[in-house]
Each structure stands twice: as structure tokens, then as C-alpha cells.
Design a protein around this nucleic acid. Structure first.
Lengths: 193, 193
DNA sequence: CGGTCTCTTGACGGAGTTCAAAGCTAGTGG
DNA sequence: CCACTAGCTTTGAACTCCGTCAAGAGACCG
């Protein structure tokens, strides 16, 4: 159950068997069926979620009922509403499973314990947060400067596996497009070849 | 010269006089005139920049010569191309001064020393990065779900001081609009009241 | 006072949205 | 194993918002 987590963490920091045992005691395994929520808008986000297997997404429902997807999280990725998690404020996001998934959850207090007992995790999470920040910056710049077609092509190039596993209307929602527009863009791309 | 830095840092962690002295030895003061660059595209970003006084911006020039502003940094804010700073890769951003400014610079190796000699700075920068990540997430969601007028009104509400100090075409560039469009949006808003 | 920077206005065009409908696909239960 | 349904994708037509191009007017600085 912890294989993916350990292999991911060990890309950044080394873990002894004792430290792995601490992880096993602090993370809570959980299975989630396709379409099940693990966080809903107005709840408080109590856990950081690591995806061992499957695929999750975080998204916001606006006043008109439109979904806007912030993130996809396939196996090996973290997902949460970080704002709600750290402030304890209500969340503006929903997180649910796109595929049947296996997760590892860690609460804020368990995370504090983890920092205390295995301090190098501070470093791990600092790097993780840094990379996430940089990725978000890239996405902002891409939103500012690219056409819809461009953004779609970039997404395929960067995350072909995600695009392949996710319904097309969710890709549209991630790109800030309507499903109709994405369908037409794909048609145009196909014809150009 | 270090007043703003210390007061900002002390919002998150406490600093002894000895620790402040360490800071004074590791940061490099620098003045920047309006319109001067401190980073240009294809340079490597050697410093994290703290703004003691004045106003900077980071932006990217695309193939068509259009500016896209990622960030404004008035006094009390940090700015850098974090990706270039940490990886040593060439930067895709320009950073220049919108007003005459006074800065404090810290290199990567000085930062490492800072972490070593004043470990609580790890915590400070973790929180800083976290908050930046959350701010970027909000901006992405705003790009996905808001109209141009909405985004402009939100920006005024969140950072009235920045909007007031920055030329309007730069606000447009930050919002992903042409100057003409922003001008028309402002006219519409003015007429609606 | 002259030039550069900045903002505004107008006409036109294009990318993407909206609304509506129909075709396709995959999963579920009988 | 088939039939049915719900979810997903495609297509069309009309419309809207914003970008582009071009011109002019104001404001600030040297």
C-alpha cells in the first residue's frame, strides 16, 4: 500500500526502515470509488491526500454551476485544498475520484508529528510546494498568453497519460473551455494533418 | 535599510539581534532606478529579491512581443524567477523597476548559509512558498471562471494600492487583456454608476 | 516646448460561448 | 447477453466579448 509513496519520497530524500514505519503509523489508507467525494465545498480539508492508485481531481463549482478543475492527481501525486488544510477555513473545492482509487491520508497534526520525528520531511514538502508553485506560475502564464488550441496541445505534450484517462469535458474544464469548444478544436487539429 | 525585511519576517518568526546581524551580512543591498532591469530573459536568476522600497514587476515577452506580467512586488514583497533560481536554468522572465526602488538580494549559497545558521528561516520560506502557491491557485481559478470585468474588479478590491501605482496598460497585461479592452471595461464600469 | 509614454475611441474581425439537438458509448440490470 | 439509460461527444446557428489596427488626444519629463 505504501510502495508508491515511498518511491516518490525517495526521489527527494532517503528513508530508513524505521522512518518508513513511522510513515505507516501516521498515514491512513483509504479506498475511494469512482465518483465518490473525499472533500466537498464548505467542508474543511482535514487531510493531505497522496494517490497510491487511481485518479482524483479538485474543482470548484461557480454560481452558474460550471465546474472549473484546478488539478488532476494520478498515482504518485498529492492533492488537497492546501488553503483550507492550513487555515482551517471552509474549502471552495470539491475533490472526487475519476477512477477507483487507493489513497494515503495525513492530517495536520500527524504531519506535525512527521516533521518532528523525521525532520527531513520538512525539506521534502518544501521542495514539493516549490515545484507546485512553479507549475502554477507556468499555468498562469499559459492562461495569459496562449490560445485555447495552444493550451490543449501543451497539455497533451506535458501529460498525455492524464489526457488519455480523463473524459474530454473535464479536460475542457481544466483548460477553461466549454466541452463544445474543445470538441471543435480537436476536430480542427485532426483536419490539419 | 533592513527595517521592512525584519518587520515582515517577524510577522512569521522572531529574530534575535544576533540573527538580524547574520541577515545584514548575507543580504546585499541594491538600488534600482525606474525602468532598470535586474533580470532579463535568458539570464540566470541569481538572487531572491526583497523589496524594501519601490515597486518591481516580473513579466514574460512572448513571440509576438507582448508582455505578460506574472507579478507586481511593492515594498515588503519578494520577487524572483524561482524556477531559474533553484534549477540554474535560463530564465523566461524579465524583472524591472516600475518605480525607483531599494532592494535586498540574497544568492542561493547565502540562502543555504541562512538556513544553516538560522534554521527557523526554513519555516519562514516554507510559509512564504505555501502562501504564494495558494495565491497562484486562486489566480488560476479566477482566470478559468471570471470575465475580464470581474477579474479587474477583484484586483482593485484585493490590491487597490498596486492598481493605483501601476500604469493601466500593465494592469491590462497582468489580467491578460489588451490596453484597449481594459480601457473600454473601465468606461463601462464608470457608466454603470 | 518637443517627444515619448499613456490612455481613449472607432470600425471590423475572429475565437469562443450559448442553446438546442442528435449520435455515440459504456455500464447496469433484467 | 441483450436492452436501456445516463453520460459523453459532436454538430449547427446565432451571438458576444475581446483583439486588432489605426488614429488622435492628453500628460509627463527632460
Amino acid at each position: 500500500m505504501f510502495e508508491v509513496l515511498f518511491s516518490k519520497v525517495e526521489e527527494k530524500i532517503n528513508l530508513s526502515e524505521a522512518e518508513k514505519e513511522i510513515c505507516r503509523s501516521l498515514f491512513i489508507p483509504k479506498k475511494l470509488r469512482k465518483r465518490q467525494y473525499i472533500l466537498q465545498q464548505d467542508d474543511i480539508c482535514k487531510n493531505l491526500i497522496f494517490v497510491e492508485k487511481g485518479l482524483l481531481r479538485s474543482y470548484n463549482l461557480d454560481d452558474k454551476g460550471n465546474e472549473h478543475i484546478l488539478q488532476f492527481a494520478p498515482e504518485g501525486w498529492w492533492i488537497a485544498d492546501v488553503y483550507s488544510f492550513f487555515t482551517g477555513e471552509n474549502s471552495n473545492y470539491n475533490i472526487d475520484a475519476i477512477e477507483d482509487s487507493e489513497l494515503l491520508l495525513i492530517t495536520n497534526s500527524a504531519l506535525e508529528q512527521l516533521y518532528e520525528r523525521v525532520p527531513k520531511f520538512e525539506r521534502y514538502f518544501r521542495i514539493l510546494t516549490q515545484n507546485n508553485m512553479i507549475a502554477m506560475q507556468k499555468r498562469v502564464m499559459s492562461e495569459l498568453s496562449s490560445t485555447a488550441e495552444d493550451k490543449y496541445l501543451k497539455l497533451i505534450a506535458a501529460y498525455p497519460n492524464i489526457v488519455a484517462r480523463v473524459p474530454q469535458h473535464m479536460i475542457a474544464s481544466y483548460l477553461g473551455l466549454t466541452p463544445e469548444s474543445l470538441s471543435r478544436i480537436r476536430k480542427r487539429i485532426a483536419q490539419e494533418r
